[in-house]
Design a protein around this nucleic acid. Sequence first.
RNA 1: GGCCCCGUGGUCAAGCGGUUAAGACAUCGCCCUUUCACGGCGGAGACAUGGGUUCGAUUCCCGUCGGGGUCACCA
Length: 550
Amino acid sequence: MTNKELANLMFPNITKTIEDYEKEYPERDLPEGAIVSRYAPSPTGFVHMGNMLSCFIEHRLPKQTKGVFYLRIEDTDQKREVEGGIESIINAINALELNYNEGVMSKDTQKGKYGPYVQSQRTEIYHTFIKYLIEQGMAYPCFCNEEELEDIRNKQKEAKARIGYYGEYAKCRNLDNEERAKKIKAGCPYTIRLKSTGNYDKKIQFKDLVKGKVIFPENDQDIVLIKSNGIPVYHFAHVVDDHLMRTTHVIRGEDWLSSVPVHVELFQKFGFKLPQYAHLGLIMIVDSNGVKRKISKRKDKDFTVESYHRRGYPIDALQEYLMTIANTNFESWRLAHPDAPLDEFEFSCSKVGSSPLFDTAKLINISKNCISKMKASELYENLIKWAEKYDEEFCKILKRNKEYTISVLNIEREQKKPRKDFSCYSDIKNFTWYMFEEYFKNNAKEYEWQNIKDKTTIKEILKDYIENYYNEEDDKDTWFDKMRNLAEKYGYAGSMKEYKANPEQYKGNITDIATAIRVGTTTCSMTPDLYEILRILGKNRIKERIDLIK
RNA sequence: GGCCCCGUGGUCAAGCGGUUAAGACAUCGCCCUUUCACGGCGGAGACAUGGGUUCGAUUCCCGUCGGGGUCACCA
């Protein structure tokens, strides 16, 4: 029995040839140097920051070269597939504004001429390509079951040999076609394996865009290409898809590095041009046992993209942070170009760093800077967008008091050195709640009185202040002069200097008076600029608040 | 265990045979100041290790140790 006859027996319904597909998906008509890359996740868990880093770079390279960025869904592992996986992938990409040109646009829609972009819809293509390999004698059916494979592994362990299905251990490799046909006709389940022609004692060399020259032993493993359910494994799908979709750059995590020899052999078997590979360092975390490891898309909920959106980090901050880990020269560029758009920075594969620990402190720092640079109205819009999704109650309050909120957000903002106390949108309520009656009135929080604790005195000072000193129209200097007068009237020094010069002459100093007013109107001993707060609160609100002090 | 990647302060990282070994974030102190934040100034803190090569190694070579990844009908 010839290989061709065997192939026909295995795939009687496949009539197309690989040449047909070659014609159907021609080389892309793109300018010289245009990069085609893809984000190709499997819907088997959360989308985490490591995934996003890779997606970010895959998006960036085509953008810089007028190429194509597409989304392909790798759903060949039906056992691990999670509910809503595709949607959450698309949401994650969209939320970070990493727009793609083609591929899976929603759960049910696709765009582009190189599809289908969902692997489970490409079975006929994979079968055509595997049929070709069988015809050529480059692949064969394997009838080993789990126990047999386990036996092989145990033997290898005993003999201290390399683990795997290769050479003399590959039992089904040398079956003759008659035997194969007989088993197939008898309905034996089987996988299809690569008939590797590699030699483990020889080395292959390839150039990785990130790692540089990498040397591996040749692949000699007869790896499974098609599972017994007819679905391809990653390695096979990768080669067929990235060739047919004319991907020029395969960017992926370093965890794929050691399977490059397999991919090289497969590309060679088909006579396809090898894409450029860029293997990225993995983002690491230290888990609860103090062990450093790569982020798991099934376990590490805290590092999902969703959780960062929930906390409310601005998209720009997230992108900016990703760029600091994507390219090690980015931060010095940023220092030199503090206000330039991120797009002006040129990403380069050769400047990719090694596997970093995820640095939340750094993200927070970047995010604080990012938020501090926003105009108040801009911050308001962003905050609303966030709150609509994550804090409905706050959102209603914000919408009801638009102008007021903007003035609250504008405290010590829109100036050369703005405040940097919000690290994310979810911080804002914690820092500003006392400015909103809805929260203030219902808040049972303790007043954080400092030096002046006697309520009668406090109320007396506050009433005096509001009746005889406060004026919404006052500018800051006038306001402060009045504070000074008020302080002196009650026996407190008008300035720190005066107080320090003769502490015995005073009950305290202006700080004590300012603090009493601050706490009396906000309950908090630490707030932004008091002048602004009192001006925004206004006379009526302040009066109401004085009456609330018990 | 085999194979691969990688070892500069807590984190990220300049450096590419001779440097007082940059910088950023974090941390600490001081100053500014009506509190807080901002800002300014300053401090502490690193070349994993042993052998080569060399007049001289953080830098080049080898070993050791350490960290990570990968060895599935998962991606």
